[in-house]
Design a protein around this nucleic acid. Structure first.
Lengths: 256, 256
DNA sequence: AGGCGCTTGTGAAGACGTGCACAAATCGCG
DNA sequence: CGCGATTTGTGCACGTCTTCACAAGCGCCT
């Protein structure tokens, strides 16, 4: 490092290069690029073109170049990107240079799996505590860690610097847990409970709802089925679509 | 049902009302509305205003109204939406009127939890098969179902009409599993493995990567930290946030 | 019946994200 | 040293999504 020059940016190399404010859509893709880059590094690639990296990450190459350009990118025209350098850059931007401590609350069905998920550990995080409200679960050992009661949260937060809280409780408990997390200073929450959390400004919440993902797929299944049900002529077709119900709009004409 | 009238649409109630093609962003939110509506129904609400439903679903009310208007919505001005009717509408559009069969491949750490996740069952799906490539896992019983070898997939698909495949294998196995799923006619895949899948046209893939969610949160942590590092003191204040935390909203004015 | 307050549905404007297409930059080679 | 092959970075146009603001519609009360 310190070799590269930043187009518009002043020297100050080595110092914290002030985070550019990236578009959210870009931020959401950077982790995918990072994963692809790690794969490439393991298979011996030292440089990669935008086309190659885009393929590996499952996106369009123009989009990838624009994304990377937002972080004052370090590519070489005619050559491509230096894999190692790009990994460092993205890890820096994502704040992964320090291994962040995660507190996982709710060690039920899903929480149990998350506690053992090695993807967290291998991609920059450290599970610092397992917590649960159920006294029957306290003391249980999972993956070398002991489950503590959720009321221990203040003590745990004081010992470790908890950056991120993960909620894997039933929906009924989630809001209370979120409040407790916020109370001990957690400002980022990953919520697996199927409910909306209300948190003060300045606290980020991301939600993952497994059933919702399936329901979105279900919609597309439904749509595909209703399309293939259309016979070639499209004239009668009483079985599926009666007359001009709803939005016929623009003469779709899906021949096939 | 069959009581409601559609503004521009003719009677023919009861028949399948041709799916309007919804914006993707809308589709992604419908499941959230549905969940909120079920909550409301359980707590005895018969009607709900767009404002109320928007709050329950964690979105802005204008957005909600526009979303619902896309499916030829059934609200009453001055009153709101009929909860039961709206539930039926959304479930129909999402294709949840039939309980769709899901095949889950990969019964490791995460797959095990998914197999036991009751959110799938309670929100319109049925886990029709558990499959794994590891002979040591075949025969294991999870939640009343027996794990079968993944090579049984063609037979299983012939018996049950598998609509959706869920991949919870390691990344190295995911592409092969996806190919097998596609081969038996699955056209929707939910992928938990951290890799991109390539599938033929007409097959939908959604990806859920738990580590990526954390990394996105990590970025925001990093950014917040680099902002709060700017103010006057800059050094201390580890315990909590110095400035005005709560809901200041408008006048945020952090640093620059 | 008529007026009033409330709520939906939607046009229009603006913000945001995407993809094309090409100039600028770099490398390798003769 | 200059030229061609290659690949990045980006201006621009387009499409999608969000948000505002308000007319139209509905029920209730007098």
């Amino acid at each position: 490092m310190s070799q590269h020059r930043h187009p518009g940016a002043p020297g100050r190399a080595g110092a914290v290069p002030a985070l550019p404010d990236l578009p959210e859509a870009t931020v959401a893709r950077l982790p995918e690029y990072l994963r692809a880059l790690h794969n490439l590094a393991e298979t011996g690639h030292e440089t990669i073109s935008s086309e190659g990296l885009a393929n590996a990450a499952g996106v369009n190459s123009a989009k990838l170049r624009k994304d990377l350009s937002h972080l004052g990118s370090y590519g070489t025209r005619g050559v491509g990107y230096d894999v190692g350098l790009l990994i460092d850059q993205i890890e820096y931007v994502l704040g992964l240079t320090q291994r962040r401590a995660v507190a996982l609350v709710g060690v039920g069905n899903l929480g149990h799996a998350l506690a053992g998920y090695d993807g967290f550990v291998s991609r920059g995080f450290r599970i610092a505590a397992l917590l649960d409200a159920d006294p029957a679960r306290v003391g249980e050992e999972i993956n070398g860690m002991t489950v503590q009661h959720v009321d221990e949260l203040p003590r745990v937060a004081a010992e470790e610097s908890i950056a991120i809280g993960v909620i894997a409780t039933p929906a009924t408990a989630a809001q209370a847990v979120a409040d407790q997390l916020v109370a001990v200073g957690v400002t980022s929450i990953l919520n697996f409970a199927p409910c909306v959390l209300s948190v003060p400004d300045g606290v980020d919440v991301r939600k993952v709802d497994l059933a919702i993902e399936l329901q979105i797929l279900s919609f597309h299944e439904h749509r595909k089925a209703s399309l293939t049900a259309l016979p070639t002529t499209g004239g009668s077709a009483l079985t599926a679509l009666p007359g001009g119900l709803a939005v016929t709009e623009s003469q779709e004409a899906i021949g096939t």
